[in-house]
Amino acid sequence: MTKQAVLSLEEAVSRIEPGSSIATGLALEHAIPFAAGHELLRQGIDDLTMIGPISDLLFDQLVGGGAVSRIRAAWVGNVSAGTGYRFREAVESDEIDIEDHSNFSIALALQAGAMGIPYLPTRSLLGSDVFERSGLFREEIDPFSGDRITLVPAISPDWAIVHVQRASPDGDVHLWGNTGIIDPAVGAAENVLVTAEEVVDPDVITSDPSRVAITHDQVTAVVECPFGAHPSPLAGHYNRDNEYYLEYHRRTKTQAAFDEWADEWVHGVSDREEYAEWIEADLSITEPIVAAEVRYGQ
């Protein structure tokens, strides 16, 4: 893929077609691309298959907004409060299909996709109903040891959406803090949408190639999107907005209540700058830690 120009969030998200499969929320509770998710809702891009490990709220919001037909994930809810009411109601009423995973099985499925192989074996899952009822996994005998083993088939999403600290305009990415399953998902996905707190000069990125998590050949679109992971935390930029998660839980018990919430927080916001003005909590980094300098050279 050639190097990319920086796009607006609206333009980048508009490239995602209805019916796509999207892996996101990949760093678990860290760096969740909420801004991109809300743009999917504003544009009414629907019939989506959402793929992820645990989705801390974002999948619940996408389900509530009517964007989702299917979920392939290990956990969907609200890590601060437990239940995601929109997810729960949609699954109980068969409005969406759910393929239950464990965190490791979704990681391995994407890792297999990233490695270009049909499946990966694991010692997890056997004896559980995650194995029995998902209808996805196979039990086999390891031909070398004779052990019973589970085969996890590859998943290759149409898109991975990732929020990062900084990217060059070309799409080379620096990302730090915990990364969950970002690496396997980016490798497995056909297209990668990167939203970045900052778009920086390419020299910043090339100064530290060991910190490069995604390379431009993998990236379809780069968006500069400050505060793009709020209410989730982003290492070095902002803390988690815990009260947002609790308020969402209180306010979304019914579909009508969710619609009211979404009118305010999703549809009532034209862009992320306006959104940032809504945030009441002080999430700033009060005790910054600057990593020791890393030197390269020749």
């Binding site: 490990p53 645990i54 994930a73 290990a74 956990w75 969907v76 809810g77 437990g82 239940t83 995601g84 997810f87 729960r88 699954v91 109980e92 759910i98 239950d100 995973h101 464990s102 965190n103 490791f104 099985s105 010692r123 997890s124 899952l125 056997l126 004896g127 559980s128 995650v130």
Partner: peptide, 18 residues
């Protein structure tokens, strides 16, 4: 008569197995 859907495994199944 109802089934109630909970969030799911997360990493729990893996921890329990291994």
């Amino acid at each position: 008569d109802d089934e109630i859907r909970l969030p799911g495994s997360g990493g729990a199944c893996d921890i329990a197995c291994m």
